[in-house]
Design a binder for these strands. Sequence first.
DNA 1: CAAGCGCTATCTATCGATAGATAGACGGAG
DNA 2: CTCCGTCTATCTATCGATAGATAGCGCTTG
Lengths: 186, 186
Amino acid sequence: MTADTKQMIMDAARAMVQARGYNGLSFRELAKEVGVKSASVHYHFSTKGDLGAALARRYADEAIEIFDGFLEASQDVRACMRMYTDVFRSALSNNNRMCLCGIMAAEHDDLPAEVRAEVDRFTDVNIRWLVKLLSRGKKAATAAIEQRALAIFAAVGGAQLVARGRGDIAVYDEAIEAYRAAGLLP
Amino acid sequence: MTADTKQMIMDAARAMVQARGYNGLSFRELAKEVGVKSASVHYHFSTKGDLGAALARRYADEAIEIFDGFLEASQDVRACMRMYTDVFRSALSNNNRMCLCGIMAAEHDDLPAEVRAEVDRFTDVNIRWLVKLLSRGKKAATAAIEQRALAIFAAVGGAQLVARGRGDIAVYDEAIEAYRAAGLLP
DNA sequence: CAAGCGCTATCTATCGATAGATAGACGGAG
DNA sequence: CTCCGTCTATCTATCGATAGATAGCGCTTG
């Protein structure tokens, strides 16, 4: 039983942050959830900032892998985009949670610097990937594509935020559909 | 000196929440900002939930007034929409702040019930207004207009969130412009 | 005088963080 | 094989800071 405590801590912490934000994460509650003492959490992550940064770093790294898998899985821009929006959808369908970095972005100015840096990197990762995807379709000007990528990322994040507030995943689906209908999404 | 303390408290509290979120608001810091003691804040708002709900309520009420003023000021749908997006822009230009209810929406599940109710009402106010505006243009199906209104609200909120994270108001402008170019915004 | 309002002083709960102890695994030395 | 030292991982207990909240005093003003 390699129920690696460190992994369990990170998993539980991610879920808690996705549900209640970085400020809503406490070592004591986290430890209780995992079944250890808060001192043990400090053993693995010396400060709360360390933990938050580790969470965001792993999250961004996983995003790169997953997103790049989409690009390899299909040459169809529309299909890839659908897989992309489905990733954000799955956070909602998993107990009405938000994207880890989406919710942390709201707390942006309150975050320890090392956490903020990783959250910003997640944004970069998304935008770079979207640029790569959009570049497949047409060879528009780079600036135009970057603008479009940014708009898509913002719109998807906003849809997630509003849908979670409503507690209704259908709200997300409707927003995405409206984006597609308007031509914002390919 | 009717520098009404209660008003000063609400003004300072709103600014602090817009910068750091509801969880980032503390009575002590708020009191210091206003120049009173935290006990005095409790005199006007018996609990933090009371204060948060009052903030969100006033915010939503002001939004109704401001937005309806747009509808009266111009018959042009595009002009009204620009005024609408400019309201969200002004939060950013005011010290890189977020919409009060936008940032609270991220903390949605952590909010006291009375605060959450007002935040939800703000969303309603926005969507109802957008529906009213969009209905001017064309007589599309109600469901389609509501979907569109929701998508616009989400997209604008997302643009604000991302732009604040980047600390660059130009990001907001670019996203809005992309929405317009795509035809999401009229 | 009475009410309204802000104060001092204090409470309880919880936060992140740290100190120090301990149980057990592992490896090398005699 | 066994003893010794070290390392890992967790524990208990506690720290100072800060959170929101409260009781009661005192000033000011109508």
